[in-house]
Amino acid sequence: MTNFITIASVSQLHNLLGFGKPKHPLITVIDYSKISSLPEWVNVRIVSDFYTVTLKTPSPVGLLYGRQPFDFDSGTMIFTAPSQVIYVSEDNSEVQFSGWGLWFHPELIRRTKLSDTIRQHEFFKYAINEALHVSNEEEQMLSLVLRNIECELLSGIDQFSQSVLVTAIEQLLNYTQRYYSRQFATRNNQNVDYFSRFEKLLDTYLNSDNLPSNGLPDVKFFADQLNLSPGYLTEILKRETGKTAKEIILLELVEKAKLMLLNSSQTISEISFQLGFENPSYFSRLFRKKVGMAPLEFRGLN
C-alpha cells in the first residue's frame, strides 16, 4: 500500500530530515549532503505545499517525479510547485546525496509582485526530462544568490526580511529564466524535430474521422505524445514560430474550417460539430476573431 506524506511547514520538513529548528517559518535551504533516504520512505508519495528550486540532486534508484525517474547529472536543476508529487519506490539509504534545495512557502511571497509573476515561470511545471543543465559558471552564480539567502536567514527576522528574501528569490528565478533561454537556443535541432513531429500529430488529429467524437485538440494531448510538459512544448513552438501551441492549434482549426466552408454545403452548426466544437456559437466567435468576419460572410465573399 502506498502512503502519503504531506509537507505543510518548514518545521515538518526539518523534522522529517532530522534537521534542527528552522531559522524562518516559511523558507529554508536544505543541504542534501546532510541527509539520506530512510527505509520508511519507500513506497511513499511525498507532496509538499512549497515551491522548490533544487541544484544537483542525487540520482538514486527508484525515485520518481510524476511518472518519470530522476536522472540527474552534475549541474542539473529541477523546480517543483506546491502539490506536485515525488514517489520513493526503492530503498536509497546507501545513496550519497549532494547539492542544495531552496524551499519556500507561497505565504512568503503573498502580496508581493512575485506572487503574480511566479506563474510566468513555466519551468515549475516542466517534466524531469526537461530539467535545466547549467555550466560551472552558471552554477556558481546561482550558488552565490543562494548563499545570500542563507546569510539573510541567519541574520534573523525583522520588518525587511520578506522584502530581502523575495528579492533574492526573484533574482534566482530570473537567472534560471536566462539559463533556460540559453538551453532552448543550444538545442535548436532537437526543437525543430519536436516542431516537425507536432505538426504531423496535429495534421493527423485534424484529419481523423474521429475528430467530432474526440473533440477539440488541446496542448496536453500533443505534449503527452511527445513526452513533454505542455509548458515546455509551448516554449519550443514560441521560439520556432512566435506562436504558442494553443494559437497554432486554433489557427489550424480555422484553416480547416475555411476549406469546409468553401467546399461543402454544410451548415455552420454541422461544420462546427465536424471540427469537434460542442458549441457552434463558440466556433463562430473564434472564426470571426481570427478571420475578421463571420463564417457565413466568409462563405459569401468567396
Rank of each mutant, 00 (worst) to 15 (best):
M1D: 13
N3S: 14
N3M: 06
N3E: 12
F4S: 12
A8W: 03
S9G: 07
V10F: 09
V10M: 07
N15Y: 09
L17G: 10
F19Q: 15
F19H: 14
K21C: 06
K21S: 13
H24L: 00
P25S: 01
I27T: 01
I27L: 15
T28P: 01
T28F: 01
V29P: 01
D31M: 05
Y32W: 14
I35P: 03
S36K: 11
S37E: 08
V42E: 05
R45P: 00
S48Y: 00
D49A: 04
L55D: 06
K56P: 01
P58Y: 14
P60R: 11
V61P: 03
Q68E: 11
P69L: 04
M77T: 05
M77H: 07
F79K: 05
P82R: 01
S83A: 07
S83K: 12
S83R: 13
Q84F: 06
S89M: 09
N92K: 10
S93Q: 11
E94W: 09
S98H: 10
F104C: 04
H105D: 13
P106W: 11
R111Y: 14
K113W: 12
S115G: 05
D116F: 12
I118T: 12
R119D: 14
H121Y: 15
H121W: 06
H121V: 08
F123L: 07
A131N: 12
A131I: 07
S135P: 09
E137N: 15
M141R: 05
L142Y: 02
S143M: 13
V145Y: 15
E150V: 11
E150H: 03
E150K: 11
L153R: 08
L154E: 15
S161T: 15
S163N: 13
S163P: 00
L165R: 12
N174E: 15
Y179G: 02
Y179V: 02
S181P: 04
Q183F: 10
V192E: 14
S196W: 05
F198Q: 03
F198H: 02
D203F: 08
D203S: 12
T204Q: 11
N207Y: 15
N207F: 15
D209Q: 10
P212S: 05
S213N: 07
S213R: 09
N214W: 13
F222K: 09
A223T: 08
D224M: 08
Q225N: 12
L228W: 03
L233S: 06
E235N: 10
L237F: 07
K238M: 15
I248F: 05
I249P: 06
L251W: 00
L253E: 11
V254F: 02
A257T: 04
K258M: 09
K258G: 12
Q266K: 11
I268R: 04
S269P: 00
S269L: 00
F273M: 07
L275W: 09
G276P: 04
F277C: 01
F277I: 06
S281E: 04
F283Y: 14
R285K: 14
K290F: 03
K290Q: 07
M293A: 00
L301P: 00
